[in-house]
């Protein structure tokens, strides 16, 4: 830039609007975005629960029974219910966004977005079925 224009970016008279604290309520996609960011809290909670569960298992049958009893309390049932919803939201939004990050080319042509997203869903269902089979057999 020329010396003459250097002062324009910080011209004192140029007016800069402050961003409101509530900016994320301005349109629907911003709300979705903030909700998606919020899902990480619940993903973290689930991980903690899992760790607690493992600890109970290691400590023996008594501790495990206590853990299961705790889980039947309305508070934890509620927490797990809300957690499940958020994790589903997390999974679906991120699956739908994968094609943006992953550009796969086969024979020089770009694999369509729905195929990439679809493959994620297929893998999800397959893994869930596998887990279900293991659990139900046991």
């Amino acid at each position: 830039m020329s010396p003459g224009t250097q002062y324009t970016p910080y011209h004192p008279k140029w007016y800069r609007r402050r961003m409101s604290v509530w900016w994320w309520l301005q349109n629907r996609s911003y709300v979705y975005f903030v909700l998606r960011e919020l899902t990480s809290v619940f993903v973290g909670l689930c991980a903690l629960l899992l760790l607690w569960h493992l600890r109970a298992l290691v400590q023996g049958p008594e501790a495990h029974a206590h853990f299961l009893a705790q889980m039947r309390r309305p508070f934890f049932v509620g927490l797990n219910g809300v957690g499940l919803l958020f994790i589903l939201f997390h999974t679906i939004t991120w699956f739908n966004l994968t094609p943006k990050a992953m550009v796969v080319r086969l024979g020089g042509k770009r694999v369509p977005d729905w195929t990439i997203a679809g493959l994620n869903y297929v893998a999800w269902v397959l893994l869930s079925v596998a887990v279900a089979v293991v659990l139900l057999r046991g």
Binding site: T5, T8, P9, H11, W14, Y15, R16, R17
Partner: peptide, 12 residues
């Protein structure tokens, strides 16, 4: 930043 009316500064 707004320079004037509907005109913004795009130097950045």
């Amino acid at each position: 930043p707004i320079i004037r009316d509907l005109v913004v500064d795009m130097t950045d």
